[in-house]
Design a binder for these strands. Structure first.
Length: 304
DNA sequence: CAACCGTGGAT
DNA sequence: TATCCAAGGTT
């Protein structure tokens, strides 16, 4: 059990060595991203968070602008056919996110009077929102105090605090505990810290080639102080893509996205020559709700 | 908890 | 050319 004095000293130490320099760096170096502007609102923040799940900022930007212009409120998206969300998703990847965002918009309309909820638990209950996204929306859109633990923050903590090059493959309880312990007490300060620590990982403390010369906390970084030891343990997950069901699904869905009318089986068959895998991929798309088979043997993006 | 789920730019 | 990796979530 820690004494009150020890707790206070730890907090003040963190404030001096981490929070202040990182937040000051953020204020001088933050990107001017559209979802960070006040007019974005909670819905803009939420849309951006869905799109940014495993997709780089540069590819999200144009699609984000189209989405919020076309569907400025959750109810606007909720009123659309889900297939329209899938179509407008374009080539962002992982199109189930589009379906889930559409489902989340409907839930917001039905359960929250059309307003993006501010409570973490209510956000978490929406489709497509997990621990990270719930914390991100609550923090960025509503200024709440939550540990926002994404891949950037995990890497920053791994290096500056733990002294290793990369975080574990899957998020651990120890990482969550660490993130909570480093969270400033003050709500506003906590929200600033969340955005700032994430941005530091995105711009400076990057996975491939960190620019420690630009890092505001390089002097305190445990990894740098240890001489930047190379990563130990199992190699990072290497995911092959060519020849997988995912690639086939992507090709099939691309045909549906670009078609204005329902598509024939023949048109879908043209994208992949191996019939068993092709059928399996199409079945998967249908069971995921991304593709709707029609009674006459045609296929289209889902209307309901 | 490991596997699955897209896509494209950088190295 | 092959690999890495990008604001994760769901099963």
């Amino acid at each position: 059990m820690r004494t009150h004095t020890e707790q206070t000293e730890q907090t003040e130490q963190t404030e001096t060595t981490l929070h202040t320099p990182v937040i000051a760096w953020f204020e001088a170096n933050a990107r001017d991203l559209p979802w960070r502007r006040p007019e974005a609102g909670a819905w803009g923040v939420m849309v951006s968070e869905f799109m940014l799940q495993q997709t780089p900022v540069s590819r999200v930007l144009p699609v984000y602008e189209q989405w919020v212009a076309r569907w400025p409120r959750p109810a606007d998206l909720a009123a659309e056919a889900p297939g329209e969300a899938v179509r407008a998703w374009g080539r962002l990847g992982y199109p189930r996110r589009a379906l889930r965002l559409h489902g989340a918009a409907q839930a917001i309309r039905d359960r929250h009077n059309g307003d993006v909820p501010s409570e973490h638990a209510q956000l978490l209950a929406l489709p497509g929102i997990g621990e990270y996204t719930a914390a991100a929306v609550a923090s960025f859109a509503y200024g709440q105090r939550h540990a926002v633990l994404d891949t950037n923050v995990r890497r920053v903590f791994a290096r500056t605090v733990t002294g290793v090059e990369y975080p574990p493959n899957a998020t651990t309880a120890a990482e969550r505990r660490l993130a909570r312990s480093l969270l400033p007490e003050d709500r506003t300060r906590a929200a600033e810290w969340a955005a700032a620590s994430m941005e530091l990982g995105a711009l400076v403390c990057t996975a491939r080639s960190p620019e420690c010369g630009r890092c505001p906390v390089a002097a305190h970084c445990a990894w740098k102080l240890a001489g930047k030891p190379a990563h130990e343990g199992p190699p990072r997950r290497g995911q092959t893509y060519a020849g997988t069901d995912r690639q086939v699904r992507g090709k099939l869905l691309a045909v549906l996205r670009e078609a204005v009318a329902p598509v024939t089986q023949q048109a879908l068959d043209a994208v992949w020559d191996e019939p068993v895998q092709r059928a399996r991929a199409l079945d998967g798309l249908v069971s995921d709700g991304l593709v709707e088979p029609m009674a006459d043997g045609l296929y289209r993006l889902p209307l309901t």
